[in-house]
Every structure is written in C-alpha cells, then in structure tokens.
C-alpha cells in the first residue's frame, strides 16, 4: 500500500494495514518535520511530487522490500504540500514473522525512498523564505534504476 496525501497522515492506519496473525513484529517509522537543520530554522516544510512516478517508485520499493527481507506486508504514505514543524511527513509500516527483518526492512525502505522517489522538499523559514533541500544520500548524476 503506497499513498501520497495532501492531508495529515495517520500512523494507525498504516499499522492496521500491515498487522497480521502470522507476524510477530511490526515496525512503524514516522518521519516528522524538524525545526532546526544545521543552523537553519524552519516553521514548515513543503513537499512536491511527480505524483505518478513517485507512486510507481514507492510501489516498486515495497515489492523489493517484501522480497528482500521476506516481509509479510508493507505500507508507505508520504504527505505533500505544507507540513508544520512536528507533523508527520512520511510513515513506513512493515510486518514480518520476526523482528530483525522488520527493523532492517523499514530502514532499507527509508534509504531507498530518500534516494529515488521523485519528491522534493522546501524548508520555509520564519520570514517566509523558501529553500530547496535535497537529501544527502543521492550522489550527483547517479541513475538509481538504470
């Protein structure tokens, strides 16, 4: 289950989507909007997406994670538009029979998502100034899936 939402995310919905009687472990990761990054202060973040491709990449990451870590289920939701400091911008939920796969799988999904899903972030400062903030994981010029 992959989704892009313009309203507040619901961690419980993602948890419910992956819960299974065959699983002994569920992990939910919530990425939240942070006030300070380096020396900069933000009042909110603003996310933009190439929506059809972002959804395709998120669904591909889910399939790959399920196969690679033998997860039972996986759910990713990313918020778009304005996200106030403290609010949730992304939720990743996974379930597996044992905890190691769930913990490792959730971390791997976040790394892949930050590397290749076409979503962009602006930090909005208290004075209203907006700057684009790319993820640090992406090396310039590297083509993730070709």
């Amino acid at each position: 289950m992959a989704g892009l939402r313009h309203s507040e995310l619901d961690e419980q919905r993602c948890f419910a989507a992956v819960r299974s009687p065959e699983c002994g472990a569920m992990v939910v990761f919530a990425g939240t909007a942070r006030r300070h990054t380096g020396g900069r202060e933000a009042v909110r973040l603003r996310f933009f997406a190439y929506e059809p491709m972002a959804l395709r990449e998120m669904e591909a990451i889910e399939r790959e994670a399920i196969e690679r870590f033998r997860l039972a289920a996986c759910a990713i939701e990313h918020r778009l538009g304005d996200v106030l400091v403290g609010e949730t911008a992304i939720v990743v939920a996974v379930s597996s029979p044992h905890r190691a796969a769930a913990l490792e799988g959730a971390a791997w999904i976040m790394n892949e998502l930050k590397r290749r899903v076409p979503i962009w972030k602006q930090e909005i400062a208290p004075d209203g100034a907006a700057i684009w903030v790319p993820n640090q994981l992406q090396t310039q010029g590297a083509a993730p899936s070709c």
């Binding site: 996310f47 976040m110 998502l113 930050k114 899903v117 684009w132 790319p134 310039q140």
Partner: peptide, 10 residues
C-alpha cells in the same frame, strides 16, 4: 520526459 533535480522526500 521528466527533468528530476536531486530529490528530497522522506
């Protein structure tokens, strides 16, 4: 064809 600057999601 989409021109994709360094991404910032997550």
């Amino acid at each position: 064809v989409a021109v994709i600057p360094p991404v910032g999601g997550g």
